[in-house]
Amino acid sequence: MALLQATYRDAGPVTVLDLSGRITLGEGSALLRSTIRELLEDQRFWILVNLGDINYIDSSGIGELVSAYTAVKNRGGELKLLHLTKKVHDLLQITKLFTVFEVHSDEVAALRSFDKKSV
């Protein structure tokens, strides 16, 4: 079972958080939480979470994504999702979280969507 790996990069005013592996109870959820906290402490409030290499999320991971969304929003920022795998897509659909998260399949378009609101 692949553990979660998280790296981030700058794309203009947006931070792209590239995640790979599993976001599950324990280390996966904890790493996502600490990474989001680190980004917010670094004044990075526009965050695009790339889930293209995430092959598994459980309810704990879903909760962590929601928690990240709320934490960023409470700081006046935005957190959006990019490149959902089919399993993650289906999971967000049945849990109705598609109505909460803004989801993109194209990184350039996703970055542009932040530009409109961040300037």
Binding site: E64, V66, T70, I94, T95, K96
Partner: peptide, 21 residues
């Protein structure tokens, strides 16, 4: 119910729903 509007932003409470689904 985790699908209720007021619970959508809850950080927990989806496990039973997933098992049922």
């Amino acid at each position: 119910n985790p699908l209720a509007e007021e619970n959508l932003l809850s950080t927990s409470g989806r496990g039973i729903f997933l098992m049922r689904s």
